[in-house]
Design a protein around this nucleic acid. Structure first.
Lengths: 254, 254
DNA sequence: AAATAGGTTCCAATGACCGGAACTCTACTC
DNA sequence: GAGTAGAGTTCCGGTCATTGGAACCTATTT
């Protein structure tokens, strides 16, 4: 029998296979059949079947009456213990709520995660525009305000590495030229905040500022709004105050 | 070499081991050293070391500068896709917020998970009392309002099974006698709501109602408050309205 | 009734996983 | 700064859990 390896050829551990199966799920695909899991995880059906059964036993997957698998409650429960939820999210929440009251626009908080912007929280409602971001979801680093901030405050090497890979185009306004993006990132870091104009969603723009701790950018705070009613100077002002307030909150205890 | 098995003697899969390691974390212990993980997971140090390394590679664990391991952001991110978060929590949130505005007390939403009450959400603040519940955390089924509701609406067999195991005592007021608890559960189901008086936290009481879908209790909605200012009839009234509103919300789209 | 797709079980072969032991590193103590 | 304890890491031979192809179910469609 051939050893444990993906079709790509790289050997992979049993635990890696389990994680690969769990990683098949995303916002678009929250309920998957066994075949779909087998296809996406690149594992043979029989292997997928066994891995899935073990994940179900452990409470990491649940099988619905529709024969589809969904992420189990236990993953959610354990995930609540992650520092990003337990520390950042909880401490920032009151400030995010206040920002929303002040602006009436969508407020987003994101961190860098595996080369993408991970949305830790999003506060907003019918009063504001519809956005692509969603708590727990990922978006590219070069098409949103928070993404640009997270990238701009990275080390030059990390930035180069990001620029070396092809940049996805989400809208016609997305900056996909590495040279232009590099200039944009430099400007962002110099002026202290990022702006995105219809680079992620048509009609929407965003402004974002970093939350800095010890020189490192631990998160980015942003506002998403219709380009037409975006008072940038005012938004930058309230955002920077809020970022400062979150930073202090984080410093308070450890 | 002996096969893969816990000290208890039962064989366990590699994936089971990974889950066992992740299961070592809880609200009290969010950062664990390798030795602690080895001790709690009942795995030998060398095995723990390997499993942990694989989980780190997969982004399910992170190693801090303090040499302690924490739950990785990726678990949080994937956990957001669990139906309990994605469906129940998001849909119920506005109603919970409204309930909080109306009562000024801690509002809790819980589901049954592995024989315990899993707190899906908790809204409250300085205006109200301090409670033991926390989003993502578990509490026993027999010492809280929401717990009693979740248990009372279970099948008679499931209730018997729960009663057959020893009942933990959290406070001197906790009901730990199976016969008394059974009576309490019957009363709870008949009257349509549960009451708990200092059974979980001294000085606090709670009232809870079920959220029913197709006869099944899919969640429990509760209020926690000082026993002295608990207007039970009024709380039951607002809770039942809110539960109904959440039920409709859940029915709206599939 | 046949065909198709999706899901499950079986099983021989084997190499990934297992954990004891040896070793290294770190943090104290004296 | 030598000594020591504890934590963490690496090594490695043996073995059995894991693997995936194949066969087998079971709905659903034609």
């Amino acid at each position: 029998m051939s050893p444990a390896r993906t079709t790509a050829g790289a050997p992979i551990s049993s635990i890696g296979r389990g994680i690969a199966v769990l990683g098949c799920f995303n916002e678009r695909r929250r309920a998957l059949t066994l075949s779909e899991l087998s296809e996406k995880s690149l594992l043979p059906m029989s292997s997928t079947h066994r891995v899935v059964a073990e994940l179900v036993t452990g409470g990491f997957l649940v099988r619905g009456s529709d024969r589809r698998y969904r992420i189990g409650t236990r993953v959610w429960s354990i995930g609540q213990l992650a520092p990003v939820s337990d520390q950042l999210r909880h401490r920032a929440l009151p400030t995010l709520a206040r920002l929303y009251e002040e602006t009436g626009e969508n407020i987003t908080l994101a961190v860098l995660d595996r080369g993408q912007a991970l949305y830790v929280d999003r506060i907003g409602g019918e009063r504001s525009v519809h956005t692509a971001s969603r708590a727990g979801g990922h978006l590219p680093l070069h098409t949103t305000g928070v993404g640009k901030v997270l990238l701009a405050w990275q080390s030059p090497e990390a930035i180069e590495k990001y620029l070396s890979r092809p940049l996805s185009r989400t809208t016609p306004y997305s900056i996909v030229d590495p040279v232009k993006l590099k200039t944009e990132l430099n400007e962002t870091k110099t002026r202290g905040y990022a702006i995105a104009r219809q680079e992620s969603t048509a009609g929407n723009g965003s402004v974002a500022v970093p939350i800095l701790r010890g020189g490192r950018c631990v998160a980015a705070l942003g506002v998403v709004a219709h380009l037409t009613h975006m008072d940038i100077p005012r938004l930058v002002d309230v955002l920077q105050q809020a970022a400062d307030s979150i930073r202090k909150e984080l410093e308070d205890d450890h």
